[in-house]
């Protein structure tokens, strides 16, 4: 068990893998500044055991943080049968892109599907707004 889970606000390290979602794509086409697009983008799908370790339930907001930035998104249970503790899934979006590193090793290809971050409960904080 990692040290973070003993803190009063448990923090765990996760690897975020991004993916495409048809409903999110449709929402983006209709209005990329709209509520539906935000609701379908700013989400993190976690293993139920990770939700438990974070002392949160599905629908609560969490803070995702790494050296690139910090965002608040809604936590969801992934629903996948195979356990995936430490790995979380997120639709590819401007929100996930706030945490993607510019370190490419000179290849020109960022690691969009391989994001390392910490996750903690956001204690009711609102989902990050989309702006620069």
């Amino acid at each position: 068990m990692d040290f973070g889970s003993f803190l009063s606000a448990p923090e765990i390290n996760i690897k975020i893998v991004t993916y495409r979602d048809i409903f999110q794509d449709k929402a983006m086409i209709e209005n990329r500044f709209g509520e539906e697009y935000r609701d379908r983008s700013a989400i993190l799908k976690l293993d139920p055991a990770d939700l438990k370790q974070l002392s949160i339930k599905a629908g609560d907001t969490v803070i995702l943080k790494n050296s690139l930035g910090k965002i608040v998104v809604k936590a969801e249970e992934s629903g996948y049968e195979t356990p995936h503790r430490g790995i979380a899934y997120m639709p590819n979006s401007p929100w996930s892109n706030m945490l993607v590193s510019d370190e490419t090793g000179g290849t020109g290809v960022p690691r969009f599907k391989d994001i390392s971050a910490t996750v903690t409960s956001a204690k009711g904080e609102k989902v990050t707004e989309l702006r620069f």
Partner: peptide
């Protein structure tokens, strides 16, 4: 590449056609 040239700041203007790099590229 778009990523390396923006990162290294070697380009001094941009014409973007049918794309939204502020959303689709890493913010960094």
């Amino acid at each position: 590449s778009v990523v390396e040239s923006l990162k290294a700041k070697t380009v001094d203007a941009a014409l973007i056609i049918g794309s939204d790099p502020l959303s689709s590229l890493p913010r960094s």
